[in-house]
Design a protein around this nucleic acid. Structure first.
Length: 761
DNA sequence: TGCCCGGGTGTTTTT
DNA sequence: CACCCGGGCA
């Protein structure tokens, strides 16, 4: 077992501790993946059947890579049998086999976010609700976070606190929408992303025999990136591990950056409660980065209150200071960074793949793309619109999905009249009404128009029945033709290829190519089937729903500069890393600056960004940048101030930010007022925006606490407590504390930098 | 039923 | 600025 020798003491202890509950707190760059892979290899070498190992990762890519590395240690055949993948893909697989127990047919469809939002939109319309108030994104997030906390639609609709909360947010129909949404998903034989976890919980809770089966199967469980698991995931793990308690979780609280989607740092703390005799391993030696980078990262994270104390250190060389660039505009920022990459590429004889540009939001990529292109530096952008979300791809996938599951309403609606076959909105509306009336799927209505006496003329009826027959004819081959044969048959018989082929514009051409690429992908998928196994189209669909484009690395993208969001960079490392757009209201995002916990998450994000660098880190900010089409002035990020100047190499240090939250808020207000006049019509809606529930907060921005106007005796409006009167103001900015009397809630003390108060007079 | 124009709206982050 | 959606007209 030579591999043990290549580990330090802490790592080896973690690897050799085979049984019982354990937690590995792994600092950035401390060899976390190494410990995980070696530990799994070690389990196998100690006669644990790979078939009994469940390893849950954050991305499919991480799973694939880890599998490969374990394969190198213990042989590919062994590694193949490990159940390794994301929560979503593993439990989708299990649900696929067991879902008849919870009343779902096996061929259920997985709705992606687009499908879910589109369904929500339809529901809001059908209920004649205000679509400005019930925006699909807001409703989706609300439902999603309910599911991630295992609150079912029924429980949601009955819960008084939630009802009160929704009322206060002026969205009293939320529960009803949630109920209808679930009903519709079920009728469509579909599950959304969150359902995959929610329904797994239902399955394991209500069916002890199923639970026992998997408890016995998964004798050893490992969870990577534990800090980013949500409550629903936590409960699944807790159930599965309850029998053997051979549970190893690995994570780093300092790198928890998915709070916005329900990740719960509490899970780390709960671990101690659930398994009091657990073993804790701390990996603190960093092997990735220079001393400067490690030190800087430590000083950044030290500003957070919420954290598990640890000291990340390194024996690596000192390294260069962090270079800080100031740019006048976003475009200049792009040019500076591109030039810097060009120079460092030469100087260090580095490869292009050694460089990464990391930004907070996808929208920032543009200026870097342009500048890199001008210098002929090859680059690859991750994120943005994924391949599988492109219209032409979703269209073709909709044909596949409908073939596999006739009741998939979103797919049906997408393609019933694309390409054009003369089945218009009016006919579809009639069918939708009938579907709702009879409580059956849209497909059922359309396949039996006479049974439900649809008021549609005979011409349309025959067009509909042609369509139904077409899809049915595809479906007869689901279990005979392999995925590729059926897919290409569908693609050519549904006229979609022809439609795209006739479009000779560059966009049309690229759409055609994309569809070809999808078919090629299916061919590869089909050809890669293990011996004696045929892969069918439904197998592909299960895969594709949970695939992201980060999972498909193309060989031609080898040796290119990487452009991605900081979130996407989690778990990766590069010799040269540029963290760009270090400005207030961008990084940290303006949606986070009003709450300490949100701000701390932004800081962890910054920590993640900096710790991606091995040799050298660069930071940059622009003094002005285009946002929503107009030039806005920017302040350097507060995070820059948190770095000791002795680590920084800059021509000019950014001026200290005014320590005054009112000042920052003022900037926002100016920005807001600077918009076209008709925009102000949206302003009154601000009153409805809840500051306490950021998951559903509107994007119109939060009301600024205008310190100029706020006086003792002022009448104010608080989203939770309603109207109130300021009794007392004390403290200096930014820590002004207000004592406010609310007739409905009594006297409250509010810190103005957190509480969002609207001054009424 | 389909296309074009204009207004409104949006930027976190993703399985 | 760029996209999407809805309304109006052909």
């Amino acid at each position: 077992m030579d591999y043990l020798k290549s580990l330090n003491t802490a790592q080896r202890d973690a690897v050799e501790n085979l049984e019982g509950p354990m937690m590995v707190i792994a600092g950035a760059g401390s060899g976390k993946t190494r410990v995980l892979t070696y530990r799994i290899a070690h389990l196998i070498n100690n006669n644990v059947d790979p078939f009994h190992i469940l390893a849950l990762t954050f991305t499919n890519k991480a799973a694939k890579e880890m599998k490969k590395r374990i394969g190198e240690l213990v042989g590919e055949g062994e590694a193949m049998n490990i159940w390794m993948g994301t929560f979503h893909s593993i439990f989708a697989r299990i649900l696929r086999m067991e879902c008849d127990r919870i009343g779902y047919p096996r061929n259920f469809t997985i709705y992606d976010t687009q499908d879910s939002k589109s369904l929500i939109k339809t529901i809001v319309k059908e209920y004649h609700l205000d679509d400005k108030l019930y925006k699909p994104g807001i409703v989706y997030n609300r439902i999603s976070s309910a599911k991630n906390n295992l609150i079912s639609a029924t429980a949601y609709a009955k819960n008084d606190d939630i009802i009160a909360d929704d009322r206060m947010n002026n969205r009293p129909k939320m529960g009803e929408i949630y109920m209808e949404y679930q009903k519709r998903c079920f009728r469509s034989n579909a599950m959304d992303f969150d359902d995959l976890l929610f329904k797994t919980n239902v399955l394991l809770k209500d069916h002890p025999d199923v639970l026992h089966k998997y408890q016995h199967k998964f004798k050893f469980i490992l969870v990577d990136e534990y800090q980013d698991t949500n409550y629903s995931q936590y409960i699944i793990i807790k159930r599965l591990a309850a029998l053997n308690e051979n549970l190893c979780v690995v994570g780093d609280d300092a790198q928890s950056i998915y709070g916005f989607r329900g990740a719960n740092i509490q899970n780390i703390l709960n671990f101690k409660k659930d398994y009091p005799d657990f073993k804790l391993f701390k990996l603190e030696q960093n092997y990735r980065s220079t001393k400067v980078i490690v030190d800087v990262a430590n000083t950044i994270i030290a500003n957070n209150v919420d954290q598990i104390k640890k000291k990340v250190w390194t024996e690596n060389g000192e390294g260069d200071k962090i270079k800080l660039y100031k740019a006048l505009t976003d475009n200049e920022e792009g040019r500076i960074i591109a030039n810097s990459i060009f120079e460092n590429h030469q100087q260090h004889q580095a490869k292009h793949l050694d460089f990464a540009i990391l930004y907070r939001t996808n929208a920032q990529s543009r200026s870097f793309e342009e500048a890199l292109r001008k210098l002929n530096i090859p680059y690859k952008i991750y994120g943005g619109l994924s391949f599988y979300q492109r219209k032409e791809i979703k269209d073709l996938l909709a044909y596949f999905r409908l073939t596999a599951n006739f009741h998939d309403e979103e797919s049906l609606k997408r393609i019933i009249n694309y390409p054009k076959r003369g089945i218009g909105k009016t006919s579809l509306d009639h069918a939708t009404v009938a579907a709702k009336e009879h409580g059956v799927s849209l497909w059922n209505i359309l396949a039996n128009p006479d049974k439900y006496s649809l008021p549609i003329n005979n011409g349309t009826k025959s067009k509909i029945s042609d369509f139904i027959a077409l899809i049915k004819s595809f479906a007869t081959k689901l279990e005979t033709d392999n995925a590729y044969v059926l897919a290409s048959n569908i693609a050519s018989s549904c006229n979609l290829l022809k439609e795209l082929y006739t479009d000779k514009t560059p966009e049309g051409l690229s759409r055609f190519e994309n569809v070809q690429e999808l078919l090629n992908g299916i061919k590869e998928f089909t050809d890669n089937a293990p011996k004696d196994e045929v892969r069918f189209l439904s197998d592909f669909l299960l895969d594709v729903a949970l695939l992201t484009d980060a999972d498909s690395d193309k060989p031609e993208d080898y040796n290119k500069v990487t452009l991605m969001t900081v979130h996407a960079a989690k778990g990766l490392e590069f010799p040269f890393v540029y963290v760009v757009g270090m400005e207030e209201n961008l990084f940290p995002s303006q949606l986070s600056v009003n709450s300490r916990s949100d701000l701390e998450e932004e800081r962890r994000l910054f920590y993640v960004a900096v710790t991606r660098a091995e040799k050298k880190a660069f930071l940059s900010y622009a003094v002005s940048r285009y946002r929503w089409g107009n030039l806005t002035q920017c302040e350097p990020s507060r995070f820059l101030e948190e770095i000791d100047e002795r680590f920084i190499d800059a021509d000019e240090f950014p001026a200290k930010r005014k320590q005054n939250t009112a000042g920052i808020q003022f900037e926002n207000t100016a920005n807001f007022l600077g918009r076209p006049a008709n925009r102000t019509s949206a302003a009154p809606k601000k009153n409805l925006v809840p500051p306490n529930l950021k998951k559903i907060s509107s994007t119109t921005g939060s009301p600024a606490v205008d310190l100029e106007k706020l006086k003792e005796g002022s009448n104010v409006l608080h989203a939770r407590f309603g109207k109130g009167k300021v009794v007392k103001l004390e403290g200096m900015a930014p820590n002004v504390k207000a004592t406010v009397y609310f007739p409905s809630a009594g006297q409250k003390q509010l810190l103005l930098k957190f509480a969002k108060l609207e001054v009424l007079d």
